[in-house]
Write a protein that binds this DNA or RNA. Sequence first.
DNA 1: CGAACCGGGTTCTGCCATCAGA
DNA 2: TCTGATGGCAGAACCCGGTTCG
Length: 379
Amino acid sequence: MAAVSGIRALMKVPHLLILQQSFRLTPLQLASTRHCSGSNGLKLPSDTENKSLLENLSLLGVDVKMVRQRQPGVLRKAFTNEMGLAQFLQEKGASHKIIASIVSRYPRAITRSVKHLEQRWQLWRNVFNTDAEIVSILGRSPEAFFRSSDNENLEKNIAFLISLGLNSKDLHRLLTTAPRTFSNSLELNKQMVEFLEDICHELGGNDPEQFAKSVISKNHYILIRSTKRVKANIDNLKTFLKLSDAKLLALLQGHGADILDLSNEYLKKNFKNIEQKIILLGCKKDDMKKLIINYPMILYIGPSTLNSKLDCLLKGGITIKQILEKPKVLDYSTQNITERLKELQRVGYDFEKNGINILDSSWKRFAAKIEKLSDLPEE
DNA sequence: CGAACCGGGTTCTGCCATCAGA
DNA sequence: TCTGATGGCAGAACCCGGTTCG
């Protein structure tokens, strides 16, 4: 018991770093010493929180209230590895604040052994070049890294994704933007890939593997969505647009891939809104169809944003016909568009004569153009 | 040479429900 | 039966510049 109170006293030292440097105790030693009088099982008597664990967490700056709210069971465990985890992450370059935030948001992280952590880290390092990249993702999304304890599955996932023909750049982007993909069961990922291949097949495509790969590399979120969701979106697009199989296939492996992961209701809502708004502006259903095929990302824009964007363009003297021809101007924020329109009005830009492509360019190019126009003598 | 085309970069977690194994 | 693992969901655009074209 003396050892325990000794350690507890040491725990009062505010910084983990100082703790480690001064006493040269490995976190595992800390953890194992801590519970010498504890129960012999993995769990403490019912509903009893592990007091020394609570102290360690406080020492690490963890928000215990949040832990209790998220994964209360973790606080009742007799053996945990919070100090090992903290040291591990610190060695990888995570700040105390990040570590505390990680544990607060995904408490189960402290149940992983150092050996497990090292293995998993190495697997992630197969995809990332630096520890810092991984640290930043853990800071963003601790759950993605810690939720699964199955390193073998992770390894298989990486192998599977490579086998699809995704290159290291794809993999890097996939793990950066949708890290959950790698914690999915291999089975789940395979299901989505097979589903995509089936879709290609049904639509008369002759290279299902290429199709699946194309969709995944265009939409990095696809593998963390349910096949149910993706299927419903494809079905809805089919109903809305009434395209031939070949055209639908082309849409899906082109820019249409971007919108496949949207929630079903959102996609429907946006579609209805586009329809309503476009008709209101005097266009035909066919115009709308063309608009969506040429610029599927329009379905990504929520009703209020889209409507205000359109209104802003129209108010600025641009016609709906011009917008239908160059829908990419809708890529830009309403604010951006507003500012450009103001500038263009100042220099007396004639949209009818010059078109609206100038709205679809970087600020740098836009500014250069404006400067040139301003320098021109008044006619 | 400027304009138009086109693709790419950024970004997406935190919660709940359910399943499956100890 | 408990709990850890896993699946699924809602939420919601914007910007830049290399390359090709005329």
